[in-house]
């Protein structure tokens, strides 16, 4: 464990908690892409199946349980409890255009042709594009609630910190995982446009609105 990975995990945890609390307290999921949240639930489910097969540490196991629990709770709130506030018209990204290519790539490019490994690889590739429905929805509505931008910032920051963690691990431990690194770079690049808007607008107290 290093400081970058720790703060990456904490940033990721913060994002998940911010979103869950925002929906729960405002009793509304307006502006939130349910499709992205379903993709994240799939990402955690396919990645953390090793919860059933291996124990790494209390930290590792508890964080995985929290991630899975919160992501399913968020999906439940969006599609069941606060379904009336779900903005289905603007959440129109065709996720099958993500899942099919990512699934195919995971079967073609992986470290080991075993079920758990292919599911892990699928989860890594899927996570790199899972935010696209959310970013697409914001581009369609032309704006985002400030709390949603904080959620997105933490979500984007987490993988950016992981990139530094991988540099650290390569330099000090000689470990690297090309699949995780390439997907992490793609994932972080997808946030760059948002990061620019977040720093130039939200941090100056303005609302995040895109030129419609």
């Amino acid at each position: 464990m290093n400081i970058f990975r720790l703060f990456g995990d904490l940033s990721h945890l913060a994002a998940i908690i911010i979103l869950l609390l925002k929906i729960w307290k405002s009793r509304s999921c307006a502006g939130i892409s349910g499709k992205s949240q379903i993709l994240f639930a799939i990402v955690f489910t396919t990645r953390y199946l090793d919860l059933l097969t291996s124990f790494i540490s209390l930290y590792n196991t508890s964080m995985k349980m929290i991630y899975i629990g919160c992501s399913y709770a968020t999906v439940y709130l969006i599609y069941a409890k606060f379904r009336a506030t779900y903005d289905g018209n603007h959440d129109s990204f065709r996720v099958e255009f993500l899942i099919v290519p990512v699934g195919g790539l995971a079967v073609l490019i992986n470290h080991d042709f075993s079920l758990l490994e292919i599911l892990w690889t699928f989860s890594i590739y899927l996570e790199s594009v899972a935010i696209l429905p959310q970013l697409f929805m914001i581009s369609k509505t032309g704006e985002a609630e400030t709390i949603t931008t904080h959620y997105l910032f933490c979500q984007g920051l987490y993988r950016a910190l992981y990139l530094i963690n991988w540099i650290w691990r390569f330099y000090f431990e000689g470990f690297f995982d090309m699949i995780a690194i390439v997907a992490g770079v793609v994932q972080t690049i997808l946030y760059c446009d948002f990061f620019y808007l977040y720093v130039t607008k939200v941090l100056k107290g303005k609302k995040l609105s895109l030129p419609a």
Binding site: R5, D9, H12, D50, S54, I56, S57, N60, M63, K64, Y67, H111, E117, W120, Y162, N165, W166, R169, F170, G174, F175, F176, D177, M178, I179, A180
Partner: peptide, 10 residues
């Protein structure tokens, strides 16, 4: 350095 997976990572 091998291409070991980071299965200890989240």
């Amino acid at each position: 350095p091998g291409k070991l997976n980071h299965k200890d990572e989240l």
